[in-house]
Amino acid sequence: MSQVLVLVEAPDGAVRKPTLELLTLARRIGEPAAVVLGPGADQLAARLGEYGASTVYAVDAPEVNDYLVAGKAEALAHIASQARPAAILVTASADGREIAARAAVKLGSGILTDAVDVTGGPDGAPVATQSAFAASFVVTSTVTQGVPIIAVKPNAAAPEPAPTAPTVQTVEVPFSDLARAARITERVPRAVSGRPDLTEAAIVVSGGRGLGGAEKFSLIEGLADALGGAVGASRAAVDAGWYPHAHQVGQTGKTVSPQLYLAVGISGAIQHRAGMQTAKTIVAINKDPEAPIFELADFGIVGDLHAVVPQLTEDITGREG
């Protein structure tokens, strides 16, 4: 069986959930092989093996650690040209999609982005499901030339363990000068909130301009904590300085596809919808019955969020306590 390369994301030394989802999807097409570009492959191998990676390709060099994207693309393409995989799966993050894009040029491969599902087609070739135009269409596509490269959105599949003992294979990559063109001079890791990661969370509670002030985000955090969810924000709330940009949901923020999305004091502008419309269940709380967010809502409350949200948080906490 051919290998399927999975590009590992483990920025803080722990394998991120979307990578485990990719390993799970990869098993539908072939034998998952993980690609670790950066330090710590030996430590990550056990976890990758738990989810079915039989091989872990490891590249640890300044070109993949201290420079933007180009070196990682060279490493991935180099491994692909040796392993001749049936497909390459990456997470549809900023880095993931750009590494995939450059590798696609190098390998002459077709690339599909923002897949919400990947299956093995009748001839074994992967079929990607994507949603288009702010999720108003569902499209299935296949790659017709080269190794199929697919960038997959978080939450595309539930990670399923398939334990195996992986072999770690260190790979020497003949990097070009171009891999050292764009140097990362400073890196400030995201502040950790103790809450689930926005893109990975099963439940997201987002607040918008309707909150009326930064201090009111405590209402959103309280509700998110009661539900075990992550906190999101509209661009209006971020632009007002009420919540960090890392939490922005939408076209120019994060795209989320959780099981449950609660929009609180958010009108539902097209750019916001672009980031949350693939959520399974949508709940909206807004005082304006005409707010476009209600067009998407499975359950909507027309009312004052300052009255509804505290009560909601109390009811949920009471139920569980």
């Binding site: 696609a104 002459g108 491969s109 077709g110 690339i111 599909l112 079929v127 949603s131 288009a132 999720a135 108003s136 269409f137 569902v138 499209v139 299935t140 596509s141 296949t142 790659v143 017709t144 030339q145 080269g146 199929p148 419309q277 949508i282 019955p289 209600f294 067009e295 998407l296 809502a297 499975d298 359950f299 909507g300 409350i301 027309v302 009312g303």
Partner: peptide, 20 residues
Amino acid sequence: RSTVASVTARPPRGGGQIVT
């Protein structure tokens, strides 16, 4: 280098329960 196998319009969302 890729081809679209199918395009399906998503059933419009909505028809949700809206309460005042």
